[in-house]
Design a protein around this nucleic acid. Structure first.
Lengths: 211, 211
DNA sequence: GTCTATACTTCGATAGAC
DNA sequence: GTCTATCGAAGTATAGAC
């Protein structure tokens, strides 16, 4: 992976950091690079996201990556933020329309999302700068979902003592993660039965006086 | 990542493949390299497992990695197989002693196991040679666990119609995966409540006539 | 059987011309 | 805003000396 920084670089003391020029964030070229990087990430994993390959995929020179992003970590973070913001917004829109457990469950089923999570968690394992960003987002996402689950369970007459909303949420999250993760591996034993069980349970919780 | 093979290399036609010598599989040096690689994988993610770093961690020359393993993929597979076999065996031993849901749940709680899974699934995302191996193992593990869950539920008087054993298994697997995954990120919101719910549910399923 | 020397590739990043 | 040129570190892998 040709680790970090080519040279220590004797930096002029008057310009403490970021002396390099950086491209505008509205640039179409920048957007193309981001799109190429995102595709690479999903198709081939984060290790495939190198400035050279991103450049090639976008039909551009690899140095442009460094012109628009201070470092590869910054590129990764930009990809993460965009997707995070977008999926948070999508979730909140969907919940605003129909604040049910089924809505949340269906949102989780997006296979792209699970692939993203895997890649970024693995990334976080050796790029500390990325870990905290992911953790912060995870908490934010959890809080927003929790609100929806709490409301949905209350509407179904389920008390928090019978079933803590946060536990219900984690069960759903865990399940959808395993299901999509295994699907990408080609393992699908038991998936059908499990999905059926979730559907039944959601229906039951939506309108019953019992756990 | 300084991708693949230094040179095409003009290979003599009489020696179609694997002309290189390989070290003995009982070698202590080999074991040291494997241990170092495994530690690196867990601590820093698969991208940190490079011949140079593995060598350094083991206090050996990086070239030795290539002497004992034909390629980095082979090293990864060796790590995977060892851990896979061992955890399958451990599970079967535990279940033989006490074939209950709680036994299975406690086995899943091992954080090492979940970290391994994350790393290898991410790896499988762009190393095809590894994917099939993981998928095959997953099916094997699933089948063994399923047997135990089926027996445990039957013993508790739960019919497969009330709760399909394979679905119960996937719920447990998904949960333990999310819990440890989030823990490594430092996110633990709701974990306590969820673990409590699982414990309660296991107790209920172990000895009751109701779903 | 075991390890060293070394080849060659790719990496991130920068400087400076256009 | 983009391209040419280039550096030095790190990557995989092989050939051949002990």
């Amino acid at each position: 992976m040709a680790r970090r920084a080519a040279k220590p670089v004797t930096r002029p003391v008057t310009q403490p950091v970021a002396p390099r020029r950086l491209g505008a964030s509205q640039s179409a070229t920048r957007a193309a690079l981001l799109a190429a990087a995102e595709t690479l990430l999903l198709e081939s994993g984060y290790a495939a996201v190198t400035s050279r390959r991103v450049g090639a995929k976008a039909g551009l020179k690899p140095q442009l990556v460094h012109y628009y992003f201070r470092s590869m970590d910054e590129l990764f973070l930009e990809i993460f933020r965009r997707n995070a913001e977008e999926s948070l917004a999508r979730m909140q829109r969907a919940v605003a329309t129909d604040p049910s457990l089924r809505t949340l469950w269906q949102l989780n089923a997006d296979p792209r999302g699970a692939t993203f999570i895997i890649e970024f968690v693995a990334l976080a394992n050796h790029r500390k700068a990325i870990r905290s960003e992911i953790a912060a987002y995870a908490e934010r996402f959890r809080a927003a979902q929790l609100e929806a689950v709490t409301a949905a369970l209350a509407a179904g007459g389920i008390s928090p003592e019978q079933l803590p909303p946060v536990a219900a949420l984690l069960v759903m999250t865990g399940l959808s993660q395993v299901l999509t993760l295994e699907s990408t591996l080609g393992v699908t034993t038991g998936h059908e039965e499990t999905i059926a069980l979730v559907e039944r349970t959601i229906t039951r919780l939506a309108s019953s006086p019992n756990s």
